[in-house]
């Protein structure tokens, strides 16, 4: 019995100093291996008197179990220690730069166009695009701008052939095409975004190529108040819920009455600042009730049908919305700016 206790004590004192799996294995062999000191004791059972055999056997089993427990627990201890060492060795510097995972950015004009498209499609407007190489007939004549009309001066146009084919100076011809193509002469709700061209020298606020989006609604009993309601929604979507809107009388050959579309200044809220030139209001587009001659030209009886049309310069809206001061920015495509626009807008 004394031997048993002694062996266990010995093992306990030895195991404290064990620090590796190999040492632990050696220790296991020394005590629990076939020729280990504990295993050797079991051969002693045979030499014992019968009455002691039983108690010795029980004691021996207990010692074996304790020894196994001691070794197993040391094993766990070592494994944990080794894993911790391994993990400590694997530690990385999380402050190093990431591998840049990117998707491409949209062109900022396209972003504003799609924002408006989403809004107006939800209000029942179809998005229709038309050709950029256009007929004078659609770009001017049917829009109540006959040849030689002085109002054509405002749109210095790129002609391709003598006065018949041109690069469109506005997206309005898409309205004409849509009204003409609608043979049943049913109500129309469309918006027409697209590229337009005028003979302007490129500078901070002019571009020979620019982008417009026009809208047209033709139905029965349509009034300027309906235009105002529609414009309100557009203005709030683009420039914030607290925007107020205002109409100023204006002139376009294809609308009667015609108005300028003003919004309360989003920068100063109407007090007057350099963005609104001290007036508290910013003009963002033009609009009006579709001119009776235009309706007539497109086969809609102006006694029955009325409608409104509105138009925005997308560059201007974008410049206002994102604080861009030079419209050439849209066409240089400086990729250092791309990531600015590859994110969601603030609601």
């Amino acid at each position: 019995m004394k031997d048993l206790e002694k062996i266990l004590e010995e093992l306990q004192s030895k195991i404290v100093n064990v620090s590796s799996m190999n040492e632990l294995n050696d220790l296991r062999v020394e005590y629990l291996g076939k020729k280990g000191s504990i295993s050797m004791l079991s051969s002693k059972i045979a030499e014992l008197p019968v009455e002691e055999k039983k108690t010795f056997g029980a004691e021996l089993n207990k010692v074996k179990m304790t020894a196994n427990e001691l070794i197993d627990s040391k094993k766990n201890e070592i494994e944990t220690k080794e894993l911790n060492e391994k993990l400590a060795n694997e530690k990385i510097d999380i402050s190093l730069p990431s591998t840049k995972v990117t998707v491409g950015a949209p062109n900022i004009l396209e972003k504003v166009i799609e924002d408006l498209e989403e809004l107006l499609m939800s209000m029942g407007y179809d998005v229709v695009e038309g050709p950029e190489v256009e007929k004078d007939l659609y770009n001017f004549e049917l829009l109540n701008l006959p040849k030689g009309h002085p109002a054509r001066d405002a749109q210095d146009t790129f002609y391709i052939t003598d006065e018949t084919i041109l690069l469109r100076s506005q997206t309005s011809p898409v309205q004409i095409r849509t009204m003409l193509a609608n043979e049943e002469k049913t109500p129309i709700r469309i918006i027409c975004p697209g590229k337009t061209y005028r003979r302007d020298d490129d500078d901070a606020t002019h571009s020979h190529q620019f982008t417009q989006m026009e809208g047209l609604l033709v139905d029965k009993n349509i009034s300027l108040a309906n235009l105002k309601g529609t414009f309100d929604i557009i203005a709030k979507r683009l420039f914030g819920e607290d925007r107020e809107t205002r109409f100023r009388p204006s002139f376009y050959p294809f609308t009667e009455p015609s108005v300028e579309l003003d919004i309360s200044c989003f920068n100063c809220g109407g007090k007057g600042c350099n963005i609104c030139k001290g007036t508290g209001w910013i003009t963002v587009g033009g609009a009006g009730m579709v001119h009776y001659n235009v309706l007539k030209n497109c086969g809609y009886d102006p006694e029955v049908w009325t409608g409104f049309a509105f138009g925005f310069g997308i560059e201007r809206l974008t410049m206002l919305k994102y604080g861009i001061t030079d419209c050439r920015t849209f066409y240089t495509n400086d990729l250092r700016c791309a990531n600015i626009y590859d994110r969601k807008d603030v609601e």
Partner: peptide, 28 residues
Amino acid sequence: EEIGRLYGYDNIESKLPIGPTKPGKYVG
């Protein structure tokens, strides 16, 4: 137009157009 501009457009109340509406779509 002449009567309206002198009377003042500030007095126009916003109203959305009514009438049957279908969802808008991309054409072409």
